[in-house]
Design a protein around this nucleic acid. Structure first.
Lengths: 189, 189
DNA sequence: GTCTATAATAGGATAGAC
DNA sequence: GTCTATCCTATTATAGAC
């Protein structure tokens, strides 16, 4: 039995996942500590307990979380032993889920706009794009593609995904996103 | 001769062009009236003289300006009598200049992230994307393409431009942007 | 680890002189 | 049309109790 009675402690990772969603949807600047307090149910002081550096600290934690998540869920599976088309297909399914079928913004795009976000956080989200292109490119090369062609097609795929996200949300038409994923998949095979 | 001596009056359009650059680079939320005051050299009260509704008013003015600019510089020229490849080429040159070779963010993407921007401003920038796809599509149809194919390829071109903007800035490599424009051009012809 | 209370600052907005 | 001065609220951040 616990010595003291307190509201259920929230783990840092649980908070970070909430922050991830807040930041990608609202952008770093528009999200206030009050918003974060509401979304997490934690008081401001509790937030500073978890993130002594305040919002910049939170942004870095979110960027690190996103990078680790992408590595685990998207980049590492691209290295598996299954056939290339299965791996690309799995990646596109993960992409679709992550962006909620085209309705949810990308953290990378949201964070890159913010001039007040910590340089470390921005550097991390930018690195995710480079990692992503590299991961797809490596899969294509392992399947026999030339280095230059692999890189070119991998870059085009990430461009199509990011662009479709912007255009689908602007047009309010998630079909644009799903169609773009299909086309991108074909171009990779 | 003027009756009173005052600092040179800035026209509303001059202010709007400065606001356009501030908003697309920093995002609506991160740009404060102090920032705007610095960039324009005008005091806050002068800004409220030009935009009685404050920041939301400014965002709407910028969105309207962008829409008019796009219509004049990109959509109308697509209707001209010159050969299709010349028109597409001209559009891509305008795109490259507008986004400064891939280094400058898109106002549309910046504004869409902002949850606090006026719904009217957001509706306007979203409409620009629809207009853009429609303008390219109309040019392709006038050149003999089927309606569905024209729409599909026009959408893909705008996706490629918007995606390349995100990826090129994330990777810090403007060549990604220029290469993507070349590829997009080929796909339209 | 979470809370309440409070400080300090920055933000948007207005009044009134020139 | 622009300025200075001011107001109010929101925001970040801290102190200290539990």
């Amino acid at each position: 039995m616990m010595a003291t009675l307190q509201k259920s402690a929230m783990t840092r990772e649980e908070i970070v996942m909430i922050l991830f969603d807040l930041f990608r949807r609202g952008g770093y600047d528009a999200v206030s500590l009050a918003d974060i307090s509401d979304a997490t149910g934690l008081g401001k002081s509790s937030l500073y307990h978890h993130f002594p550096g305040g919002k910049p600290d939170m942004a870095e934690a979110v960027a690190d979380f996103a990078r680790g998540w992408m590595r685990e869920k998207m980049f590492d599976p691209l290295k598996s032993a299954s056939p290339l088309d299965k791996r690309i297909d799995a990646m596109m399914k993960t992409v679709s889920a992550m962006y909620e079928g085209g309705g949810a913004p990308c953290l990378i795009a949201s964070m890159m706009i913010s001039p007040t976000a910590s340089p470390k956080a921005i550097a991390t989200v930018r690195a995710i794009i480079a990692d992503w292109i590299a991961a797809i490119g490596a899969a294509l090369r392992a399947d026999g593609a030339g280095a230059a062609d692999a890189r070119r097609r991998a870059t085009a795929a990430v461009i199509a995904i990011q662009g479709a996200l912007v255009v689908a949300r602007a047009a309010g038409d998630e079909k644009i996103f799903s169609e773009a994923l299909k086309t991108a998949k074909s171009s990779l095979l």
